[in-house]
């Protein structure tokens, strides 16, 4: 599904990612952990095609194809989804309207027929139950005035609606209360699929006890310094990051 080879990325001339290697197969869930500022969001943004990042070395293959050649909207249409660490507010643009535009843009790209209002609402109703989202949020502008937790649920609702092949979740658990965390995690679990890969950035083991990952990677200063299974996360929870960085040094 996704192969990252020796990826180096700079921002404003400063090296942030310094040789990332990662292989994600269809159906797998990978967790990426690591200290603040280690480059987790940078990696997520580069995969999604955000401006301002310069790839100086390395390759990213997605479904066997060079991902970096595509514009961000085209990547989205090809099935790459990023749940934002900080979802953006768009005043005056209705949440449902936005989602419908997105769903249909992607369907159109994929050569599928656009959904009409009826079919769209039916699909929406079904997916809403996944994250137990309140109906009234649909009538509001995209993320405007949403609480931190509501924004994160909205991201997962969008993921459910857009049906991506590769979903990158950047700290989707941060800002969620205990109940919301469980609901969102269950939502994501239901979206696990043999044909869908999930890359999950998180700081907390708690999320990983709900969404059990196949692999856990530790990112530090722009490099993956350790990989393991779900037990690595438990170890990190207990000992912090210090011992790994020491081990590497």
């Amino acid at each position: 599904m996704l192969t990252i080879k020796n990826l180096h990325v700079e921002v404003d001339g400063k090296a942030i990612l310094k040789g990332i290697d990662l292989e994600v197969h269809a159906g797998e869930v990978h967790a990426i952990m690591g200290p603040n500022g280690s480059g987790k969001s940078t990696l997520s943004n580069v995969l999604a095609g955000r401006d301002g990042y310069t790839v100086t070395q390395g390759d990213v293959l997605y479904q066997g194809d060079n991902l970096l050649q595509y514009e961000p909207d085209e990547r989205a249409c090809r099935g790459v989804f990023l749940a934002f660490q900080y979802p953006v507010e768009i005043p005056g643009v209705n949440n449902v309207y936005f989602l419908k535009a997105a769903v249909n843009a992607i369907r159109q790209y994929q050569g599928k027929e656009e959904l009409d209002a009826m079919d769209f609402m039916a699909l929406m109703k079904q997916k809403m139950t996944l994250v137990k989202m309140d109906n009234t949020l649909l009538k509001r502008s995209v993320n405007e005035g949403f609480s931190g937790g509501e924004k994160k649920r909205n991201e997962i609702l969008q993921m459910a609606m857009l049906d991506p092949k590769l979903a990158i979740l950047d700290e989707t658990d941060s800002g969620l209360d205990i109940d919301a965390l469980r609901i969102v995690a269950e939502g994501v679990n239901q979206l696990r699929h043999s044909q869908r890969s999930i890359v999950m950035v998180t700081h907390y083991q708690r999320l990983l006890s709900y969404i059990v990952p196949d692999y856990v990677h530790v990112l530090s200063e722009g490099q993956i310094v350790k990989s393991g299974d779900k037990n690595l996360a438990l170890e990190l929870e207990e000992k912090g990051y210090g011992w790994i960085t020491e081990e590497v040094a």
Partner: peptide, 23 residues
Amino acid sequence: QLFYCLQRGISEEDAVSMIVNGF
């Protein structure tokens, strides 16, 4: 805002139009 729209598959032209009309 633009990147958020693009990441959801919406083209730049449609995104600008959407944001302006929202305004």
